[in-house]
Write a protein that binds this DNA or RNA. Structure first.
Lengths: 353, 353
DNA sequence: CTGTTAGCGCATTCAA
DNA sequence: TTGAATGCGCTAACAG
């Protein structure tokens, strides 16, 4: 039936321990012996029993990458880069990490469930990507869970997420995006063009990413003397998807038909906003300007091409992957802020006179 | 240190075996005892040791979903749906499956590596999504690997991939897309509009998806008396990404400046094709028509909206998830073909006179 | 450099 | 309905 390490040992005429050593490559083994063992492994088509190995070693080669929405390229790009970076580990041969992505669907409960499942598997590392849900209960639960994970030796890396309050010690490294700064610069760009009545299509209210981008926007508005209650009227919350952007934009137009610009929470939402504006007969950017966030691959192909804030998703993901495998040293203080670049394209222009 | 089942047993004043039984819910346990145990679990914040459990039971709750490109929504949608469907299992409580997606990046070697890693973890099921690479060596290796997986009790489900030659017995179920039929209908649509000089931007040459879609296209062309060597000249292969579509389209235009339509291997490629055509000063569809495949969410928002073939990615993924957990019975013969619907939008029209 | 010896934490017989 | 005993397959000291 299933071939075990003992079978390999018997065939290679060595002890099980020796087989284990050549497989893990952690101890010196004579070249000739190693050859013999590897041949036996090959002939028997032996595959290490992961659970047994993990049980004995009290650690596994599983690395979990948590994402809010696997169908969203924003997460796909980071996850793919992280996964790729982990394959590059220095310790060839047995150094394989099973990098694996878990889709929380944005649900805090599922996030916790996955964390437990990963803890159960004694994962080597966990990477949390994207914004967190800001709910006192959930934040505390997450912090506690991460602390336990860290206790058990699991490395915890945050990618595109602010440090979890109360989990300082538990976190190996946090790579956070400067959503606030990006949001501010984007709105400043519009203000500079001469816009004054700017609508904002925000993401889900309880997300850190949403809040930070919105805060950046409002900071810019207030600095231009456009603060006050009006801001609330010109902000509509929704999901981070196309449909939500479409609906929210129509609502914005209903509330303020004289809008000259719409800023969206991200590029996907911006696409929906563009569709809504077109359906209303408005030309972009002649009648109204539109801006997004993230600079996903499709944004340059939108018509007109989208003005947005470029986040180095690929680099961030790769770095998170290296941090998770211990290939790269954590930044000083454990936290690194990654900036976004304003990318001005054709979807924004001067407001109509 | 780390809490074990024995600790829980001690606290609940029962034997370890009893704790195991209430946790797995497979044996009758007195309600009062169960209560006591669950309370102890809670108080101690106990988490089952996955590897130990998997070792003892010779099976784990890990399910692997392999995708070619995690940054591509085509895969993200299927994977997300599959993952979601698995969470719905009937056996609540301990029924949690750790559904996990593995990004092969389209590399046959990585695919095999992941399969081995999953075999090592004694995965409960494996879902392979998207087209396969058609290389005799790799096909044989994959078939052999799948056979071993199946031998070990792992369920193998194919989603959007044709049955693996030589692995018939090993596969629980195969959900394949009718790429050929979709490709044929798409080209027939263009022929009906009056097009005769149709360029084709294909995917990577060695992929089943690529071949099937292309065969459908050519079948339609030949049926219209447009077969022959000319077809090769009007076909350019590339990757399934935007950039590749852009470059291939320019090449097509170079080879045949009088093209009246371009069919792309998928929507992402079509987006690149549109960009190239625009950059060349051609209007869509007035000067030239464009069509894609898949009907990804962004396709309806392209300008002009993309004519394409809609694949029920969400449904297919969900079904694959259910097949993987055994929630749904396999189709008769183990293979089900899923059709695609022609979706005619604004990017295709009659050729210019 | 290699063999021996103990568990790792849990599921599952077999009794009671 | 519950407890005691055994072994899953492997790694990690510890000798040699």
């Amino acid at each position: 039936m299933t071939v075990t390490l003992a079978d390999v040992a018997a065939r290679a005429r060595v002890s099980p321990a020796t087989v284990s050593r050549v497989l893990n490559g952690n101890y010196p083994v004579a070249a000739a012996t190693r050859e013999r063992v590897l041949r036996a492994v090959d002939e028997l088509d032996y595959v290490l029993n992961g659970p047994a190995s993990a049980l004995a070693a009290a650690t596994s080669d599983l690395v979990g990458i948590l994402v809010n929405d696997i169908a969203d390229p924003f997460f796909g790009i980071m996850a793919g880069a992280a996964q790729h970076a982990m394959g590059e580990g220095p310790g060839r041969a047995g150094g394989e990490k099973l990098a694996v992505v878990c889709n929380t669907g944005g649900s805090p409960e599922r996030e916790l469930t996955y964390l437990t499942l990963l803890q159960r598997q004694r994962a080597a590392a966990v990477v949390l990507t994207g914004g967190a849900v800001e709910d006192a209960g959930h934040t505390a639960a997450t912090a506690a869970k991460l602390a336990r994970l860290a206790d058990a030796g699991t490395r915890v890396v945050l990618c595109g997420r602010p440090p979890v309050p109360g989990a300082g010690e538990a976190i190996t490294a946090a790579l956070t995006f400067d959503n606030r700064g990006g949001g501010r610069r984007l709105t400043e760009h519009l203000l500079t063009l001469g816009h004054r009545r700017i609508g904002y299509v925000a993401g889900p209210a309880e997300r850190t990413t949403t809040r930070h981008r919105l805060e950046g926007h409002r900071a810019a508005m207030e600095a231009a003397g456009l603060g006050g209650a009006g801001l609330d009227r010109l902000t509509v919350h929704g999901r981070y998807d196309r449909r939500s952007g479409y609906d929210a934009t129509l609502e914005l137009l209903r509330r303020a038909p004289d809008l000259t610009a719409v800023v969206a929470a991200n590029d996907t939402v911006a696409l929906g906003a563009c569709a809504a504006l077109r359906d209303r007969g408005l030309r972009i950017p002649d009648d109204i300007s539109v801006a997004g966030f993230d600079d996903l691959p499709f944004s340059v192909d939108a018509v007109p091409a989208l003005t947005t804030v470029r986040l180095p998703l690929h680099e961030a993901g790769a770095r998170a992957g290296r941090l998770a495998t211990g290939t790269e040293a954590p930044p000083p203080g454990g936290v690194a802020t990654i900036g976004g670049d304003l990318v001005v394209r054709a979807s924004t222009g001067r407001p109509a006179a």
